[in-house]
Simulated scan of single mutants.
Amino acid sequence: MNNNELVKILENNYEEIERALAGKKALDEVMTSTEAAETWGKSMATVKRACQSGRFYPWEARKSQGTWLVTRAGMKRLYGELE
């Protein structure tokens, strides 16, 4: 990803980034990939592959001691709103 692409992504997601930086309900906005898969009705493998392949933006997913953590916003962006 080049700098121009990154700038476009940041501009298009300004409000989400601003909320994340403000720490608004930070712990409520992050979950394990297993929890996210169960909540959205996806297989754990599907969410893990999305994490590994870079489908999540860098601020939407990261690995912590072997566990993928994802944001609620990232899941909504990839898989839609919860019903």
Rank of each mutant, 00 (worst) to 15 (best):
N13D: 01
A20L: 14
N12Q: 08
N12R: 06
R55W: 05
A45M: 13
R19Y: 00
R49N: 13
S33R: 01
F56K: 10
E5R: 08
N4G: 06
T39L: 15
L10G: 07
L21Y: 12
L82D: 12
Y57T: 04
N12Y: 03
E5L: 11
R49D: 11
S53W: 05
N2Q: 06
R19S: 00
S33T: 14
G74E: 12
K76H: 11
W40N: 11
S33H: 03
Q52N: 12
Q65H: 13
R72V: 13
N2C: 07
R55Q: 14
G80C: 03
K8H: 14
E5N: 10
A36C: 07
K25E: 12
G54V: 00
M1W: 13
A73N: 05
K63V: 06
K76I: 09
Y79E: 09
P58Q: 11
Y57L: 15
I17D: 00
W40Y: 09
M31E: 00
G66S: 09
A36K: 04
S64I: 03
K48S: 11
T67E: 10
T39I: 10
T32M: 08
T39F: 08
K24H: 08
W68T: 00
A73G: 07
S43T: 15
W68K: 00
K42R: 15
A37C: 07
Y14E: 14
A36T: 09
L27N: 11
Y57W: 10
E18C: 05
V30R: 00
Y79Q: 08
A22C: 08
S33L: 08
A73L: 04
N2R: 06
